[in-house]
């Protein structure tokens, strides 16, 4: 079935989405790929093939909807360690994701120098980060400052979890960015937990977005399980920042469906009923239901995407497994730029 044949019964709905059919397809495929990669990565960890895994299951809509609001190749992404799906939007392949997990020599995110999921590829404008939370928000502000001083019309989007919003660097970054009205989006994926700590233990306010009031900053809070709603919220903020409207704090209310990492047992602290309740709001199921109801895609086309993604993940694992590991003495290089 071609797009042209489909359009008559769904065009009106699609127009309401503010997204093209092609974008909606990308949205679904990217979310699904992120999910399947995360599932496979955890399995590889459990098989003893990857020492560590940290994932973003449950946050795919929050990530894909936001990343698709940016201009790829121009705008900067300063991610945190759950942003697999965002990196896929910015050009990372399944093979590359597996190279990174398996800490292979040719992993472009540092070649095994960092734990997996610490992404950074300069040519893609994805900025390297560490594990200490919130430090990257200041880097985002610095990039935005440099861009503004250079009169470059770019936007920087930086991510963190709600746990990071208690750190000093979070507040210093918002403060600095608003003083200089920098083109930066502070995108907080509120997934309900900082390892074992629920939000009541992390912050004395109900909504992360309320933190913006202390900085006289624009803010929004969006259902982070709904990729389309996320896009519809983040895109105007990005456009406004690009026009010189200053920074934005956006909270995506989502849920960490998995444990904190491969070393965490979330059954020690997370009520089962809560997990079941949020599983009902799984962002990928929700998206599929919505586009099926609105007849954007026929079910068989969505099934085709599913098959494609499954094959891609399988290929990635097989391929990456056979790539070379770094040599021991590779540890010595690149301490300084000559």
């Amino acid at each position: 079935m071609t797009a042209k044949e489909r359009r008559p019964r769904s065009k009106e709905t699609i127009d309401q989405y503010l997204l093209s059919e092609q974008q909606l397809e990308e949205m679904y495929e990217t979310m699904l790929l992120a999910r399947r990669l995360n599932e496979r990565m955890l399995a590889l960890n459990r098989q003893g093939r990857a020492p560590f895994f940290i994932g973003g299951t449950g946050q795919e809509a929050a990530q894909v909807g936001a990343a698709m609001s940016l201009k790829r190749g121009e705008d900067y992404l300063v991610p945190y360690y759950r942003d697999l799906a965002m990196n896929l939007v910015f050009g990372m392949s399944a093979r590359e994701a597996m190279l990174n997990l398996l800490a292979k020599k040719d992993d472009p995110h540092g070649g095994g120098r960092q734990m997996p999921s610490h992404w950074g590829v300069g040519s893609r404008k994805v900025v390297t980060g560490g594990s200490v939370v919130a430090t990257q928000l200041l880097h985002a502000a610095g990039i935005a400052l440099a861009a503004k001083m250079s009169s470059d019309p770019i936007v920087v989007l930086t991510c963190c979890g709600e746990g990071s919003t208690s750190k000093g660097d979070f507040h210093e970054a918002l403060n600095f960015a608003q003083i200089h009205r920098l083109p930066v989006i502070f995108y907080v994926q509120n997934n309900g937990y900082a390892i074992s700590e629920s939000t009541e233990k992390e912050m004395p306010i109900a909504h992360v977005a309320d933190r913006a009031r202390a900085y006289n900053m624009h803010s929004a809070s969006v259902d982070g399980m709904d990729a389309i709603a996320v896009y519809q919220t983040v895109k105007p903020a990005v456009d406004q920042a690009r026009r010189g409207g200053g920074p934005f704090l956006i909270e995506a209310r989502c849920y960490r469906l998995g444990a904190h990492s491969s070393d965490d047992d979330d059954s020690r602290y997370r009520p089962k009923a809560e997990l079941e309740e949020w599983t009902q709001k799984d962002p990928i199921t929700l998206f599929r239901r919505r586009v099926e109801t609105d007849k954007v895609f026929p079910p068989e086309e969505l099934d085709e995407i599913e098959e494609r993604v499954t094959a891609e993940v399988q290929d990635a694992v097989e391929w990456a497994t056979n790539q070379p590991d770094p040599a021991p003495e590779d540890a010595l290089g690149f301490v300084y730029r000559e």
């Binding site: 928000l137 200041l138 610095g142 210093e172």
Partner: peptide, 21 residues
């Protein structure tokens, strides 16, 4: 002139240097 916040002075410098300043 920056706020009296040393982490932001260094963190912002990192971002600006990464950008090419």
């Amino acid at each position: 002139d920056t706020p009296l916040a040393e982490s932001s002075i260094v963190g912002v410098s990192i971002g600006a240097a990464h950008y090419g300043m």
